[in-house]
Write a protein that binds this DNA or RNA. Sequence first.
DNA 1: TTAGGGTTAG
Length: 610
Amino acid sequence: MNSLRHSRLHTPISRTNFPKLTFFLHTQTTPSQHSNPSTNPCQNLDITHVSQLIAKQHWSEIKTLLKPTSPTTFLQLLFNYGTDPELILSFFKWSQLHFKVSHCLEHYCRLFHLLASAKKYRKIRSLLCVFVRIERYSCSSVFHTLLNFSDRVSDNSVIVDMLILAYVNNCDVGLALEGFERAGDYGFRLSVLSCNPLLNLVVKEGKFRAVEVLYKEMIRRRIELNLISFNIVINGFCKAGKLQKASDVVEDMKVWGIEPSVITYNTLIDGYCKKGRTGKMFKADALLKEMVANKISPNEVTYSILIDGFCKDGSVSAAVRIFKEMQAQQFTPCVVAYNALINGHCRDGEIDKALVLRDEMVVSGLQPDLVTFNALINGLCKKSMLKEAKELFDCIAKEGLYANVISFNTLIDAYCKAGELEEAIKLRSRMLDQMVIPNVSTYNCLIDGYSKKGNPETASKLLDEMKYKGLSPNVVTYNIRVDALCNKGRSRDAVKLLDEMIDAGLRPSHTTYNIVMDGYCREGNLRAALNVRRRMETQGLRPNTVTYNVLLKGLCEKGKLEDANTYLNQMLEKGLIPNKVTYDIVREGMMEKGFVPDIDGHIYTSSVST
DNA sequence: TTAGGGTTAG
């Protein structure tokens, strides 16, 4: 590192050791500022005049001055004359645009330093914005060159901090992370101004392991973390489902003397709502009580999170209570709160209630947005009300909104499920007309539609077309293919697809294994189904309610009620909550055996006998 | 510079 600092590539040039440049600014007429024109080859240069021309942006005259030389030499001259850095920047950018000049790294770094010395930080940010967009230098080469011009840690640190922020703003997470790492090696001090946006980008990109590494490294380098830094890290852990680690960060922030804010609590509550296990809504509710006890008032975001959480947990009635509580607390529900509840009703099959809510929001002066439309279209589709769904879809444009890929996919899926494949294909063409690009989900809907309607050749062609367009099959694509094979009684071939998935870098999900288990059960091969369950557990996936439902169904259909009962108890012991499907399976199994079920909403324990 | 809502597989 030290050797780097001492091996200057360029010695800053003072006016006294001015190099012998070979061009003259032949149009200028004012006297040169230089006292010794006989030794100065640019004796006719009037830097004041040139500066004025740049300041007034008289580029046509500058262009004439440049004729005998090149923009790069002219820039060098401006540097050497100690011209105002803002004027150099002006010329730098103009020459980039006008002559498509690719300025060298040395000139960039020299200008960064001049601007840093003059504390023109906004200008540095603006130049860095261009720099990261058009230049492809490694962080090390930039750091190395910066050090060649100055070893002032404060200036270099500010520039590097802004460079990392520029990478982040350019969504270049790779270079931003490299910059963060190398900055540590070079001893540059970073701030939350770059680290917080970097942390946030890493969370948004789902690189959760990197969040933890960054957080620990920020603490190790004694970077002054603030409330926002902690909140972003907590959000990262929550999104990764690492709720305990998120809670640990809350303790860390308290040690730093920073108290959790409403955003901290909202982030945690949302984490529990989305990733928590059994009883997650109790935990979310407990957090709500804790925040109130700590004198932090819930806001509209808190309520929206809880409404959505309860809806997704299958308890729309609880979500409605929260919605009313929100109103009782003098909060006017916002579009997000309405949308969460509208979607809850739609998923519950209660389209009328959803439409009433939509009307209510309009009366209260809120304009339904695209999310409202998409949720309602989906609700109508799931009730097989395709005509109404299509009419609502056409209303999107009338409201001045633009249908997006989700709007189209929802409708395409509905047409596929209804067997109206030609309509689905027509919609895909309409997507392209409206500049909406089909994504993997679009293809998944179509592939599933064609697979299920007995046209596997078209399904296969669509798969090839999707790959040809640069879209990689995702877990859902494989699940559709696995399902198609299982439906043909080819569960053994479906298992082979699991290996293909892993080779493609994808991780089979609960659903993947559940589909294969269901396939084997339908083939009557319970032993193979149980083998798949073991494989699933080996992969670190714990059986979920659907897994048990699939196996229970397999056992009931084979008349093995005793075994089914054992499984049911095992499911309860593992803290899994039976759902409506579980009850239906067991009830049907009992009926088949001539028993009259008397569950009334209660699950059997050991009362089942054969 | 930090938190919330909509689509596909079972």
